[in-house]
Computed example of a mutant assay.
Amino acid sequence: MNETRIETLLHRGAEYQRAIVEFDRLWETGASKQRPERMMQLLNVIEDMSSRWYRLRSKVLDGKPKTALTPRANDGERGAGHPCIAGTGARQLGRVMMHPRTAGAAALLVAAVAVCIGLAIPNTVPLQFVEEGGVIEIVTLFAYLAAVLGIHLLPSPQMPSRDVLAVSVVLVAMGAREADLHTAMYGISILKARFYLDAPPHQVLGALCVLAPFAAAAAWLLHRYARRWLRPWSQWSVAMTTTAMLIAIAVIAKMLDRAPAVLGLVSDAPAPLLHVMLASEEVLELSLPMFALLAAAQSSLGPRASLSDRH
């Protein structure tokens, strides 16, 4: 019997247990900005233990005549619920989320899904599925709700609570726009300049009061993060890249919304083209809260190197 190997095992097991206890303590009582760093330390310990996992046999535990130290046959014996497997899976998911091409790949996937849905109308997918008040729009509203909740639940060392609140207000505004609440007050969109030229003063004042919190939140975020966007793209964080993709998708969705009327395609264009444009607009709008939640998750992983360091 090799007593040195047993001592090594016990030492590693104690180290593993101490890491978990320390992680739990800091997670509950420590500063939120320390959580991502402690999480990565814990995952490193778990991964190290998973590569050196041993089982201690004894005649007391399993009736063997003598104590022996043998390695596990393979990772499959531990089971999917083993903390080593769970830790490795979480680490791999984190690497995928922090990859610089994740946002671009997700955008391409969204575009492909939108085109497929558009081409499937009306033979497979009913037109009502992508129209105003349809299934996709309803799902989009719930997605905005999930994004707002997710941003508050995900701790981010890079965003203080005031910034998180401002992002939530902006997402609420985007969700309200998707629900057409901007036309519910006076029967005309309060986002159009024509409203402020033709509407009575009391309606203009009411519209400004409604829009003031959203404008203030957007101005606050612009003040806080404008300088970061002026850096070279190679110095952007992954969360910034995802946010830029979100903004680009929002602009494209707005262009698709206006394109048929602007280009005079409402009556002249082939039906499949109009269906693809309509489906693309709705699916892209659905992806906006998902990209916001992805950016929040990437930010919650803590500070990372610039994009140039990940290639």
Rank of each mutant, 00 (worst) to 15 (best):
Q235F: 05
A215M: 09
N123T: 15
D48S: 12
H99A: 08
I20P: 02
E28R: 06
L9G: 11
D268P: 12
L307F: 11
A105M: 10
L127D: 05
A239D: 00
V45W: 04
E132L: 13
A219H: 10
L109Y: 04
M174W: 04
A216S: 13
K192R: 15
T241V: 04
Q34W: 05
R231S: 11
Y225Q: 10
D257V: 00
S161R: 10
R5M: 15
A143S: 13
D163T: 10
P201F: 03
A216R: 13
E47H: 09
L149Q: 04
V113G: 10
G206P: 00
M255S: 02
L246R: 06
I138P: 09
R18Q: 15
R18H: 13
T88Y: 05
S299E: 01
L208D: 08
N123I: 15
K254F: 07
A279M: 09
S168H: 07
A103P: 02
L149A: 04
D75Q: 15
P272H: 04
D268M: 13
A259V: 06
D62V: 14
K66P: 02
L284H: 01
T88I: 07
G13W: 12
L191F: 15
D180R: 14
A73V: 14
E7V: 08
E28N: 04
I85T: 14
V148K: 07
I6P: 04
D309C: 07
I46K: 08
T243M: 08
A215F: 12
L278M: 14
S161M: 06
Q34T: 09
